[in-house]
Nucleic acid binder design. Structure first.
Lengths: 149, 149
DNA sequence: CTTCTAAACAGAAATAAATTCTATTTAATA
DNA sequence: TATTAAATAGAATTTATTTCTGTTTAGAAG
């Protein structure tokens, strides 16, 4: 299945500009999340003229439209990731290799119950993200530790 | 029950300096989260000489030690909140009045199962935070809407 | 295929949250 | 009370991110 970025953009009333399509292509080709600066570096390989503010603007618009997602990172910088899975879900983020993996469980139903019931509040949005080591990086760490021991 | 900030700090091997205790007192007196800048403003009312870098350093050290918590905010700025509840839990944050309320549900057991099982990864940490309107702000919004209709 | 217009853009400049640095002070321990 | 590592003030700096201005362009309409 090939992603039709043009259609995604049309749905969002965003013009399918070469830079915008390239940014999507760059993100979709990566199994890891990228910083705006990194996206820009890769974009510069495809366009002689291209500015960082445009990258920021595009990433924000695409994330706003749900075509890509923002990664909440402990270092407080922005990162972006293209996620093929369109339905609501959360991510397990490897802090070593930056790989992103989908999670199926999201306890928001229970939490929403609690907020509506006990707190009588209204939920607008939520963030849930799990940090750790993916299988490969976990194995590496084990080997490294064994070597050191 | 009165919080013994001195004991908390001793446990963390942090000196109980007047500024540090005042920062804790300021945060513990607020039902809402504060920015470092706001903490500084309140601290300046108590000390003639006091600098913003010191506030940042203290807030970071205290959050590191778990005496206060960092609020992950959509505006990507840092906020801090003193939470009396020492056990693991998450928060419902009102984006209108900044009030913070404890949540009891945390689906990390299920998620940890999923990560260990299907993904064979290792969990290090997680963030879960819910944004919305608290009961009071929710009521206000309803009244405002009715007035407008 | 042209014309038109709002959106997208480059590049420079600005913003401001957060951090680093150096010299000075101070809390905690003996 | 002497000692010392930690904490601090205040100035300077960093840097991710945003704003601004003039130019270009994608997409719609004719």
């Amino acid at each position: 299945m090939i992603d039709d970025f043009g259609a995604s953009l049309r749905n969002l009333r965003l013009k399918a500009t070469p830079r915008r399509l390239a940014i999507l292509d760059i993100l979709a080709s990566e199994p890891v999340y990228l910083s705006p600066e990194e996206v820009w570096q890769k974009l510069k390989a495809r366009f002689k003229k291209t500015g960082l503010p445009g990258v920021y603007r595009n990433l924000e618009a695409l994330a706003q439209g749900g075509v890509i997602i923002q990664i909440i990172h402990p270092d407080r910088k922005l990162y972006y990731y293209h996620c093929r899975n369109g339905s609501h879900h959360h991510h397990f983020v490897c802090i070593a290799c930056r790989k992103v993996q989908d999670l199926t469980f999201c306890g928001m139903n229970e939490i929403e119950q609690e907020i509506k019931g006990a707190l009588k509040g209204r939920v607008i949005s939520h963030v849930l993200q799990v940090y750790g080591l993916c299988r490969e990086c976990s194995d590496d760490a084990t080997i490294a530790n064994e070597g050191a021991a």
